[in-house]
Nucleic acid binder design. Structure first.
Lengths: 190, 190
DNA sequence: ACCTGAACACCGTTCAAGT
DNA sequence: ACCTGAACACCGTTCAAGT
């Protein structure tokens, strides 16, 4: 039986609270000082666990991406792409967090593999294609969440009668539709 | 002959200096206080010209997008897409600035029209398709510039021998390649 | 090993007051 | 019309010191 040493916080725990704060207040209000206050600790204490705020956000990004579906060669591209998008949209400002940390990470990520596995084997340079699909999803999700941000404090609703979320979904499906049509093997010339 | 009243600064002038600062120091260091110092003015003076930093950045975003090519129905998608991408990459952190301001702007933007005009007329729901292509370009350019940011202060170069810029360009061409193949009219069934 | 306290060098924004 | 000066309520980060 391990002695009940009061280890107050570890990285995993802090990342969880950070994700909570993110969902409740959004990225601009996820500050080291607020996070520390939520943990009943001084802001400087966080720097024992993380090198910097960037380091913390990278860990939050990894946590967000844990929701990713498993790579499956039987899934079609639309299904795989929705899985990645939904992981990003599951947390407030999730896309922006992942995007800003994705830069530091090098090459083949988990998300890349999910997309790549859903691309037809016949596709040449599938790695480039998968990277492109991923960039579309990240761009899309970031814009969607940025618009939410804007709506929440100020700006008028969009002109039309179309509800926002329906329009966003339609653009997403259109994009993945084009990409997967473009990735389809050319029909054998008669 | 108008009297030589010393109007020190107008919006256009300030936006120009802001863009200069952006190119020299990057978005995180484009602060109201630094911008004011560059103009030999107190930070509070900027709030006579702009409602907020967001307002200023929206104006900077518009200026960045002035480099956009004109919409042309004769241009192919790759050419049009490159034009948009190059406008974003022409200024440091340009994609991020445009992206964060794109949320507030409503529907049909200049960039949207450029892409839309390059899509085949036969394509159904071309507006959705154009929005999707735009989201790909924004996601791509943002990631490219974020990686530059990362490289400039710290992180190791990528694993391979491939130079970065070549790899980025290849992903871009692959993405636009898939999208334009997907947008091509289906061959008439024999 | 984990955290406090205090400090450093900053932020965006508001507002009365000046010219 | 355009700007100053001072203030308010914050930031991320460092570092000696505590336990």
């Amino acid at each position: 039986m391990t002695p009940a040493r009061t280890v107050r916080h570890d990285r995993d725990h802090i990342v969880g609270i950070a994700l909570d704060l993110l969902d409740r207040y959004g990225l601009p209000d996820l500050t080291m000082r607020r996070l520390a206050a939520e943990l009943d600790v001084q802001a400087s204490a966080l720097y024992w666990h993380f090198d910097s705020k960037q380091d913390l956000l990278a860990a939050v990004s990894d946590r967000i991406l844990e929701r990713l579906p498993a790579p499956s060669p039987t899934a079609d591209l639309l299904t795989a792409a929705r899985g990645v998008r939904d992981a990003l949209l599951a947390h407030r400002d999730g896309a922006e967090v992942v995007m800003s940390s994705a830069a530091l990470r090098p090459g083949p990520s988990r998300a890349h593999d999910v997309i790549r596995a859903a691309l037809p084997e016949s596709l040449p340079a599938a790695d480039l294609g998968a990277a492109a699909v991923l960039q579309f999803i990240l761009g899309h999700a970031t814009l969607v969440q940025q618009r939410m941000h804007g709506e929440s404090h100020g700006a008028a609703a969009t002109s039309g009668v179309l509800d926002e979320v329906g329009e966003d979904a339609a653009v997403f499906e259109a994009g993945i539709g084009l990409l997967s049509r473009g990735a389809r093997p050319a029909p054998a010339p008669h």
